[in-house]
Design a protein around this nucleic acid. Structure first.
Length: 207
DNA sequence: ACATTAAGTGATT
DNA sequence: AATCACTTAATGT
């Protein structure tokens, strides 16, 4: 099981040790895995499915930062666990997903012991950093209509379907906009023939 | 048939 | 681009 999903990333010795201590967690769609302010004792690695990472303010307003897919871990959780800091982010399952959870204390000890783990963690920080910059670019330099298009194509890429099962309200929440604005932009896209709108569903064409 | 929730629209800032 | 106020459409009970 571990070998099959993580064999290309991590060395066999490590996988064997992980198998001893890890727990599997299954999530349903839209299940919130981590709230802002949670303090985690377990480090998650995504085996299957995809997770949405977002920022949330005290009013419950959100902003999507990036997605985590199979084989990825969340860089944030690593520091949260070892330093006992409260989580700064919210993690939501975008589909039924499978997570590997293991106790935080192994984290450092594996860093010393396994080269592949060190590489995996460093690489994880790096890709998360890149993704963070990408989303900053989007917020700073792109108009909302461009951001919306990017958001839609990201959904297609990650969920692997051109049918997106989201309400306009959910899209607005992720982009930290309002439902009315999103509805209007989507309507424009539909008129241009780029998408088709149904209740609770957006179908992307030309993909 | 009625209530609830999602989506569409005009006007205003 | 956001908000308000209202309408219309789709769905659940």
């Amino acid at each position: 099981m571990l070998q099959e999903h993580l064999g290309y990333l991590l060395e066999t010795d490590l996988l064997e040790e992980m198998a001893q201590v890890a727990k599997i967690r299954e999530t349903t769609t839209d299940e919130i895995i981590v709230h802002v302010g949670d303090h985690l004792q377990m480090i998650p690695i995504v085996i299957e499915g995809s997770i949405k990472i977002s920022r949330e303010n005290e009013n419950g307003e959100e902003l999507l930062l990036y997605f985590i897919e199979g084989g990825d871990t969340c860089a944030m959780s690593l520091q949260c666990c070892t330093r006992k800091i409260d989580s700064q982010i919210k993690a939501t399952a975008m589909e039924p997903s499978l997570l590997l959870m293991f106790p935080a204390e192994y984290m450092e000890h594996w860093l010393d012991q396994f080269k592949s783990w060190r590489q995996y963690i460093l690489n994880s920080y790096h890709t998360r950093m890149l993704e963070l910059m990408e989303s900053i670019d989007a917020i700073a330099f792109m108009n909302l209509d461009q951001r919306l298009l990017k958001y839609l194509s990201d959904q297609v890429k990650i969920l692997g379907s051109t049918e997106i099962h989201l309400t306009h309200q959910q899209v607005a929440d992720d982009l930290h906009s309002s439902r009315v604005v999103i509805s209007r932009l989507l309507k424009q896209l539909e008129t241009k023939g780029e998408i088709k709108l149904l209740r609770n569903k957006i179908i992307l064409k030309n993909f």
